[in-house]
Amino acid sequence: MKFNSILKRTIQYSFTEKDLDELEQDIVDYVKEYEIIYYQFSAQRLSACPHTTFETMGHHVTIGPSSWSIGVYQAAQLFEVVNRYNVTQLMPLRRDMNVPSRHEKRFSKSAYLISFLCNPVKHNHTPDMTIQKKIAKHLTTSFGGLIRAWLDILPQIMEHWVKVCIGNGGHLIRGAIAQMSSWQSFRDASFVRYELIADANAHCPQAKEDFVRTVYYGRLEYILHCTIPSNVISKNTEPKTILFGIITTCTQGHDATLELTYFRSLMLYIEIVDLAAICAVVGRIQIGTTNPQWVIVDRSGSWVRTAFTDDSLTVDTPQQDKL
């Protein structure tokens, strides 16, 4: 019953400092009792070691509620083995998350925006004409020009990737194609949150444009690695690489971090977005039986928000605040 009470409190969505102090003391008392009764300080009973619960408090404070995971449990067990048998030299080195492995390809758009494309990959993928037209429309919105002109500029062959890891410790996103084709059972990491600048008056042709940040949710199907040759429309003098996310939209205009957000099924609309617009992986839970729908679980914080900047703005010299 003690562990049940502790577990229920660790998955709460909010805490006060008093709650954390009480929870920490209850965990300490529980671990001491568990060591005597079950663990018995024996290496043969290491699988029953409860010390991983000590990690819970630090993760709640630094990362937030409901951050405890099986990864923490495994790390705690490894730490226990290393210390008990003094084999620190066998401790695996911590990998630099901003250095790609041999199975990844690093793509950096700026110092703060890094993506790692992960295998499997098709190097000779030819997008169908529907996708090519959507890419051309996206580039027309970004750089101007005509869709027909961009269709002539776009390469016929693009690299086709199904997994991407957001740099700086971000999420691993697994496209729906990888999810369906894999023989292993993975957690569905294909549903994502992405943010775009949209015209709030798009439905009123005569109204003045009003561009606002809009939150979308959808399922990432796959990623296209597109190299645009030099051209007069985008005015790039050297080949430019853009990563496109192919997404099936499920909601628009609702922020699941602020309000309950539901959808019944995926829309038929396929959207092409710059991969930089994707913020995080989200979860979903099916509710109801007769007329089921999905509720989106978005635990992303303000630190993963997409930052939109206007390059045409000039930076003024900051003025000192008047006393």
Rank of each mutant, 00 (worst) to 15 (best):
F191V: 09
V162Y: 02
I147N: 09
M180L: 13
R174A: 06
H160C: 09
V162N: 03
L196H: 01
P205I: 02
F186E: 05
I166G: 02
S182Y: 03
L139H: 15
N201R: 05
N201F: 05
L151W: 10
G170I: 00
R174C: 11
F143S: 08
M180K: 15
L172K: 09
Q156D: 14
A136G: 10
I153G: 01
T141H: 14
H138S: 14
A176T: 01
A200W: 03
Q156I: 11
K133G: 03
F191T: 02
N168C: 06
D199K: 01
A136Q: 02
I177G: 00
A149F: 04
C204F: 12
A176K: 01
F143I: 10
G167I: 04
D188T: 03
G167V: 01
I147F: 07
L196G: 02
I166Y: 06
S182V: 04
I153W: 10
K134M: 15
Q132T: 07
I157G: 08
V162M: 03
A178H: 09
A200T: 08
C204Y: 12
S142M: 15
C165E: 08
R193K: 11
D210W: 10
R187F: 10
R187D: 14
R187T: 15
R187K: 11
W161G: 03
E195L: 06
F191Y: 11
S142Y: 11
D152W: 08
V164M: 09
M158P: 04
D210N: 12
H171M: 01
N201S: 08
M180S: 13
C165K: 09
I157P: 05
N168D: 07
S185I: 10
I131R: 04
K208N: 08
D188I: 00
